[in-house]
């Protein structure tokens, strides 16, 4: 589904991503782990088009995306979250969700003046979808709350919900569990599992909590110093000496 081949990206002298090659198979929950500064977030930023790579290829569902402008990438049905939540603080929760869908007819000046019925119909669908997402995440009561008033955990849920609004085939989650309490984390796991089994969504996620990764993800890719160090099932990763060295020695 997603192929990364020989990916490279430097910042000044730092080789953040230094020849990364891996593949994310359709309908998996693939984990990406590695010590701090390994280049994981940079890989996400490259895939989602926020950085353009210095070298290498990124292929999503058969088409190369590494030269696309960032706002075109979501149209290939990829959605992402950010390591530090980026809620739209002066907008309501439901508006945070409703802005997400792609190709909204109402997003032209012309159509905001001349509100033809199909614009309203689409808007109504988007609103229903947003309400369903809030229902799914069990926070329907927050819909008219300003996003700035949410707790840290609720903001994480909102970020997650926003990706669901675009009907993606693949969702990139950057540390969905960071700063989230164990109860909420369990719920989040449940949502991820359900979306995968019920809707066939592929997940590619960065996570620091090893217990979580080992339980949720298969396969797991380990990065260190901008390279892929190992990949395999949870068991294989746990038994891999190189991985242990990277974590303990790093």
């Amino acid at each position: 589904m997603l192929e990364v081949i020989g990916l490279q990206k430097s910042f000044g002298g730092i080789r953040a991503v230094n020849g990364c090659t891996f593949e994310v198979e359709r309908n998996t929950i693939t984990g990406l782990i590695g010590p701090n500064g390994a280049g994981k977030t940079t890989v996400f930023n490259l895939i989602s088009g926020f950085f353009s790579p210095d070298g290498g290829k990124i292929v999503l569902s058969g088409s190369r995306i590494d030269q696309l402008p960032a706002h075109r990438v979501p149209h290939l049905r990829l959605a992402r979250t950010f390591q530090i939540t980026r809620e739209l603080s002066k907008m309501t929760v439901i508006d945070n969700l409703m802005v997400a869908p792609l190709d909204q007819m109402g997003e032209t000046l012309f159509n905001s003046w001349f509100r033809i019925p199909s614009v309203k119909r689409q808007e109504r669908k988007i609103r229903e979808k947003a309400l369903q997402v809030l229902e799914f995440l069990e926070i329907p009561d927050l819909k008219d709350e300003y996003a700035s008033n949410l707790s840290g955990g609720q903001k994480k849920l909102l970020e997650f919900g926003r990706t669901m609004m675009t009907d993606p085939e693949i969702i990139l989650l950057d540390e969905p569990g960071a700063g989230v309490n164990p109860t909420l984390m369990k719920k989040l796991n449940g949502y991820i599992e359900r979306l995968r089994t019920d809707e066939g969504v592929t997940f590619f996620l960065i996570e620091h909590d090893m217990d979580l990764v080992m339980k949720l993800c298969d396969p797991i890719i380990v990065m260190n110093e901008g390279k892929v160090l190992a990949q395999g099932t949870a068991r294989e990763i746990q038994e891999n000496r190189k991985v242990l060295d990277a974590y303990l020695g790093g």
Binding site: F50, P74, R86, P101, E107, L109, N111, S112, E123, T166
Partner: peptide, 23 residues
């Protein structure tokens, strides 16, 4: 007061979010 205006508010609040959602 339209989806167009909502997109404007979004890019004012956080340009990267707007981009990540295809605007």
């Amino acid at each position: 007061r339209s989806p167009w205006g909502r997109a404007l508010r979004t890019l004012r609040e956080d340009e990267r979010v707007a981009i990540a959602f295809g605007k």
